[in-house]
Amino acid sequence: MKKQAKFGIGIGVIVISMVSLAWLGYGESKTYYHTLAELDTLKGSARTERMRIGGTVQNGSIHRMTGRVDFVLEGEGKSLPVSYVGSDPLPDTFVDNSQALIEGRPAADGRFVAEHIQAKCASKYEAAPGGKLPATPAGT
């Protein structure tokens, strides 16, 4: 029985330390998904959480500055000014009218400060002459 206890302790130590590390990592990186419309309804601490928002990049709104890219994200009849300050280069698919998923926090002045951006080109395979095809972006 003593041997079993030793194994039990070893296993317990590993599992417990991993769970606590996971909890720390969770607190550091948890990100809420919100829609543009939901953003206005958020209150208190929920407004300053890390979050992800999807929308469409407004035509002609992209302004590139050194170390920062400003644009406006639209969707559900709302629009949101965004400043991208992340270090990764913006994806090639990030252009006017592309669908973008922004990740970051809302700032006090009403702008959204994004650290990550994913973009998909919505128009790609749609409504090509001769037939309508399903939109199938990136592969495996």
């Binding site: 991993m18 590390l21 996971a22 990592g25 969770y26 550091e28 990186s29 948890k30 809420y32 998904y33």
Partner: peptide, 27 residues
């Protein structure tokens, strides 16, 4: 996590690299 958090809490929450790194580097 996004799937489960939506089921249980109603809001979709995702976790990022810090979560995975914190656990998987020591492991």
């Amino acid at each position: 996590f996004p799937v489960f958090s939506e089921w249980f809490t109603g809001s979709r929450i995702s976790v990022g690299a810090p979560f995975f790194n914190k656990v998987n580097i020591p492991l």
